[in-house]
Structures are given as structure tokens and as C-alpha cells.
Design a protein around this nucleic acid. Structure first.
Lengths: 219, 219
DNA sequence: CAGACAATCTAACAATCGTTAGATTGAAAA
DNA sequence: TTTTCAATCTAACGATTGTTAGATTGTCTG
């Protein structure tokens, strides 16, 4: 039957997307690109992968049309080719968290600091941030903050946090966030802040999760 | 760094889900399972794959916890392990449709019958079905209808459509649906109905797409 | 022009995966 | 018990993929 071979061809096209999601390194690159446009060199450094291998993985991602490029002098900037790609990454990760117990266990024992907010809704957090009830800090590198961040958030990169403690009011609750559930920067920030007497906690959301939840992103 | 190896371990777990989505045959099995619980034999027949190979693919899906099994006598019934798995499949397919031009082209030239409804919202379709303005028919096998179907839909499997034409009112518009955008059954139904003088059209949604869109499913 | 550097290309190896076909398990029926 | 049949297991193959290291492209700077 002619229709049958045409049909299996359709699934083959979708499998191209699946194939690209089947490598941990490529997933990490997608996670990093969800924070904003980045050069190959920066991606290689942040993911801890050899630049030549990074380039090969990015090629695979580009052939599946999940990322696009932009040239700027010697540098080539990669970015996700749409917000739906970020949502897809969040979706795959959520399904993995839901069904793979091993992943949940690994996540729990990695986040040694028990700094997560007790199941607070995104909306109520946003309301408290808007009213000035809490201070929300974005501890990612400044370039990622500039590419897009949570409403009312202030950029204090983790590397600068110790020197810039004075910017934070001691009385108010401080809520930190970073790249998402797989990123440890907000945990480290919370640990440092608590050590210095601040009332600190974290949310596991990054901009991709926040945005996938239907909430606004500023830049 | 210890944190670094733990982190790459997290992405590896998510990649297990990606790996399982990287084979066209497995995607077709997921698509079929989104229609409801099925035995290995039935899946093999409907996907046109050797049963032993089907079993091997189902094993991979089960090891990634995307499907679960239930034994009933000699038969083993497979089902998706949650509604989120169906949503993930829809999500991956939508990203593929959005970014892979080749897939869009293949889809268009496969659906020879131009029977698709002009961009009508799901809600308005549901309202018209509820008011009795249109007749919605589910042309999938009856067992799939029984496992879950669109509200107000009537089951008329494609194989029985010709003999059961009398059940359909000639004056009203008839809207057919089947397993989803990759399924040709609703196209065939529309072709047959129009040939017999009915005012027929189709929607590309199946229960998975309908449900992923936040609309209710009956059974 | 030559040198520096970001990024890609190439070739080669080991490891993994999809597929096939034959053998085996396990539950129901004769 | 033996037979039947759904489903799984096993071994083997060919193809694909991830990774590595060296060579190359292309752009800016001196």
C-alpha cells in the first residue's frame, strides 16, 4: 500500500526531533540556549564539552531545525528557533521527572540545600514580588539576565553575590532562581545568603519553565 | 568537580526519554496507544510491524516508563503510563510540524482530499456538536471509541460506514475525525460521504490532540 | 600581507541500536 | 497431560552514532 509507506515517512520526520533529544550533551546545550543566544565557545565552556564536539552537536540540532545561527564577525551565535523548542525541552524534562524515579532521586540528593519554596504557585510569587514583599534575584550571568528574566527580578550573578550583599535588605525574604531545575547556582546562592543571616529560599523555575507555565518574561 | 558529573547524569536520564522517541516505529506505537490500551498482537497488526519487533520496541518504551502493562489471560495489554505521555507525543509532533518543512509538505500531499475544516476553533466545534447543529462521527475501530472519544461523537468505524449511511441525516453537516493528523481514516470517510451526497468535512484532531488542547474526553 | 582565533570539516574507532530469525516462556484450551 | 498461541528472549548482522584528534575554513587584527 502506498499510503502506508507515506505514513511511516511522517513518523520518520518526527523521529528526527526525537533523535536530537536522545543525547544528554545536546539536551544540556538546549537547556543553555533556553537562557538566551550564545556563541559556540561559550556553550562549550558552560557545558564543559570540547568545542569541536559542541560544534558537531549544534550541527545536529541545526539540521533538526531546533536552533538557528547568526554570524557576528568571528563569532557565530546560536539560539533556539522558537519558544516552542523551549517548551518542548521543559515538557520532555517534566515527563522524565514524572516517570523516572531514578531522576527524582538523583535530583533530590543533588540539591543538598533544602532551600526550595514549599509548593508556592507562580502567580502568588509574582504578586509578592510586584508588591515588594520579597526580593527576587537572578543569579545567572548578566548576559542571560539581559536576554530575558522574571518580572521584578534583579540581576546579581552568583560570582558577584558575595561582594554585592549590601544591595540586599536584611529584613526581607530573598528568593533566588537560576537556569532551571538542573542548575545548582540558586542552591549555592541560598547557602551563601543563609550563612550571612538572610532569609533566603529558591524556586526551581528558570525562564523556560516560567514561560512554559504561561507567565510573562521581561527584557 | 563532583557536581558536574552528577549534573550530566541528570541529562542522561532525560535522554532516556529522548532515545525512546527517536525511532519512527516507536512513535507510531505511542500514537496507537494514545487511542487506548491495546495488546501486542493488535499493535503489531495496526502498525504493520512483525510482532517480535513490536515486542522489542514496547520493551524499550516500558523501560523508559512511558508505557505500562496489564496481563489478561494469554494477552498482555499495553497502555500509556499517563496523560502526560500523550501530551508529550503531541508536543513533539507539533514542534516537528512547525520546524520541519519536509513534514508539512509530506502531510499536505498525503491528504489528497481537501476535507479539512477551515481553521475552526475546537470550542466552536464543540458548541455546534452540543447544539445538534452538526454530527460528529468517530471512524476509528469501536474499541478505540469505547476507550475515550470526543464529546457528542458517534462511533461509526470506517469499515462499517458504507452499510450504516442511513444513520446519518442527509441535511446536516457531518464532521469526521480519527486517530490524529497522521491518520488517513477520516480522509477516506470524507471522500466516501461526499461521494454519496453528504456535506462532509474532517478535523485533524484525535483524542490526544483534543485532550492536549485542554478539552474534555468522554467514555 | 601574515598571524590569531572562532568555528567547521574530515577520518577513524568503539559503542550502540534496529532488525531478523529461531528458540523459549507461560497461560488457556483440548 | 499435550496442544495452541500470545508474548518474550536470544544471538547475530549491518547501519548508525558519539567521540577523538588533526586539518581546514573564514574573519578580524597588526
Amino acid at each position: 500500500m502506498k499510503a502506508n509507506i507515506a505514513k511511516s515517512c511522517l513518523y520518520e520526520h518526527v523521529a528526527r526531533i526525537g533523535k536530537v533529544l536522545s543525547s544528554p550533551k545536546r539536551l544540556e546545550l538546549i537547556d543553555l540556549l533556553a537562557q538566551g543566544e550564545k556563541t559556540v565557545e561559550l556553550l562549550a565552556e558552560q557545558a564543559g564539552i570540547d568545542m569541536r564536539l559542541t560544534s558537531a552537536h549544534l550541527r545536529a540540532l541545526r539540521e533538526a531545525r531546533l536552533v538557528e545561527t547568526r554570524r557576528e564577525g568571528k563569532f557565530i551565535h546560536y539560539r533556539l528557533s522558537g519558544a516552542d523548542v523551549g517548551r518542548l525541552w521543559v515538557n520532555v524534562r517534566e515527563v522524565a521527572e514524572e516517570h523516572l524515579v531514578e531522576l527524582r532521586v538523583a535530583l533530590e540528593q543533588m540539591a543538598a540545600a533544602p532551600g526550595a519554596l514549599s509548593a508556592e504557585s507562580r502567580e502568588s510569587l509574582l504578586a509578592k514580588a510586584r508588591s515588594g514583599d520579597i526580593v527576587v534575584i537572578d543569579v545567572r550571568p548578566e548576559a542571560e539576565f539581559a536576554a530575558g528574566h522574571l518580572p521584578c527580578a534583579r540581576s546579581i550573578p552568583l560570582a558577584e553575590l558575595e561582594q554585592r550583599l549590601a544591595e540586599l535588605p536584611l529584613g526581607k525574604a530573598v528568593v533566588a532562581y537560576c537556569r532551571g531545575p538542573f542548575c545548582l547556582m540558586s542552591d549555592q546562592a541560598v547557602a551563601l545568603l543563609r550563612q550571612r543571616g538572610y532569609q533566603a529560599s529558591k524556586i526551581s523555575d528558570g525562564v523556560a519553565e516560567w514561560s512554559a507555565g504561561g507567565l510573562p518574561i521581561e527584557n
